[in-house]
Computed example of a mutant assay.
Amino acid sequence: MNHSTLSFPDVSHLDPEEAKQQIRPIVRTSRAARSAAKREELEDQWIATALEFINGAELVAAFVSVNEEPPSHGLIQAIADSGKRVILPKLGPGLTRAWGYFRGLDDLEEMAPGRPPEPTGPAFDNDILADVDALIIPALAVSHAGARLGQGGGWYDRALKLASGRARIGAMIFPEEFVEADLPQDENDVRIPFVILPDRVVATELP
């Protein structure tokens, strides 16, 4: 499969959630066509690019990649090795959305079926995001205008609303997932100011 571009059907006649359901499988199919070796090659590029993006940050929120997502395990370790503190998504009491401090890759465990591995230590609610200096978040696609298409769980839409206005926010996506066409959005979606591609960071054209 050619990974130079992604094209989506016209979904303008659908409501946002239906439109997203039409687009997500296209991105997932594209990701599945990329070899594990190629993802590992791109991860080495991403580490240097993302470290430059968060330069000056002390507390960084990141994510643990699964399946064919842009690989983040090596990046998380590299961020920690650079002397920064890292928090990762974690289920809190009553399956609430929370965060935990990264304490090494060996500490990450799958706490719930279908969930990415997460830190085993204490859970902190979203209030901790007020202290975060930079967020590196996942996405399936981002438009040039900053519209983000996520997996559909709403985790990061909630988190982004609580992030400090000074925090630097970037979505980590494959190059072909940075698309010119706008993506369906609803009132819960938050536009993203930057995309983190393997070899560069690009500012979106926020409305």
Score class of each variant (00 low, 15 high):
N2L: 11
H3S: 13
H3Q: 13
S4R: 11
P9V: 11
V11T: 15
L14A: 13
A19C: 11
K20G: 04
Q21C: 01
Q21D: 05
Q22C: 13
R24G: 01
P25K: 06
P25G: 12
V27S: 03
T29Y: 01
R31V: 03
A32L: 11
A33P: 03
R34D: 01
R34S: 00
S35C: 06
S35N: 07
K38P: 00
R39T: 04
R39C: 09
E40P: 00
E41Q: 15
L42C: 02
L42W: 14
D44K: 13
T49M: 07
T49Q: 05
L51R: 10
E52S: 15
N55L: 12
G56S: 11
A57M: 12
E58F: 04
V60Q: 11
A62S: 15
F63E: 06
V64R: 06
V66I: 15
N67K: 14
E68K: 13
E69S: 07
E69D: 11
L75V: 05
L75D: 05
I76P: 13
I76H: 12
Q77N: 13
A78H: 05
A80E: 03
L88H: 03
P89V: 05
P89I: 10
P89Y: 07
P89N: 09
K90G: 02
L91D: 03
G92K: 03
G92E: 02
G94E: 08
L95W: 12
T96V: 04
W99H: 14
W99M: 11
G100A: 07
G100I: 08
G100K: 10
Y101L: 08
G104P: 08
D106E: 15
D106V: 01
D107C: 02
M111K: 04
M111R: 11
A112C: 03
R115F: 13
P119Y: 09
G121D: 03
G121E: 01
F124C: 00
D127I: 01
D127T: 14
D127R: 14
A130M: 04
D133M: 02
A134I: 10
A134L: 08
I136S: 02
I137G: 02
P138W: 01
L140W: 05
S143M: 05
A147N: 12
R148N: 08
L149I: 09
L149V: 04
L149W: 07
G150K: 10
G154W: 06
G154L: 11
G154F: 02
W155D: 00
W155S: 04
W155C: 00
Y156A: 04
R158D: 00
A159D: 11
A159K: 04
K161R: 15
L162P: 00
L162R: 15
A163R: 13
S164C: 01
S164F: 02
G165Y: 07
R166Q: 15
A167F: 03
R168S: 08
M172L: 14
M172I: 03
M172Y: 09
I173A: 10
I173W: 07
P175C: 03
P175D: 11
F178D: 04
D189F: 09
V190Y: 08
P193H: 09
V195H: 02
V195P: 06
L197P: 05
L197C: 06
P198R: 12
D199Y: 05
A203F: 08
